[in-house]
């Protein structure tokens, strides 16, 4: 899995979260709460989250969708806002949807997600 995939065992610094200084890994882990409702799989394991940063209180999420015509973009963007905006230390959320690099399910979906969706069966 490349660097746009999920981090199944991300280090979780819970105390830094409580202290109001969540790490990008922790924010990324929280994004596992954002789920594609039709698929039933979270956006991190689907490989849609490319990068998460926290800069001066702003959680910047760089992500993609499976296709530019995907009608789910607004839904997921709202869900990301709802998930991150109340996290201690986060004063703003900035979601950027990009198409480069294009989403590649073979390389970007986690092994767990592939297993859930019946790959190799």
């Amino acid at each position: 899995m490349n660097d746009t995939g999920s981090t199944d065992n991300a280090a979780l610094d819970l105390m830094s979260l409580v202290d109001g200084q969540p790490s990008p890994e922790t924010l990324r882990e929280l994004l596992r709460d954002v789920i594609d409702p039709e698929i039933g799989i979270n956006i991190v394991d689907l490989g849609l989250v490319y990068n998460v940063r926290l800069s001066q209180g702003t959680a910047a999420v760089r992500m993609t969708l499976t296709t530019p015509g995907c009608p789910l973009g607004g839904y997921l963007t709202d869900a990301i806002h709802d998930t991150l905006q109340d996290v201690p230390g986060v004063t703003g959320v900035d979601v950027q949807i990009v198409w480069d690099p294009p989403w590649n399910p073979d390389q970007m979906m986690s092994d767990w997600a592939k297993d859930q969706l019946g790959w190799n069966r």
Partner: peptide, 19 residues
């Protein structure tokens, strides 16, 4: 409140008890 979406336990790998 938070947006209602399918809950994590059904949609993410099981090992963490982060929630």
């Amino acid at each position: 409140g938070p947006r209602e979406t399918p809950r994590r336990a059904a949609a993410a790998p099981p090992p963490t008890d982060l929630l």
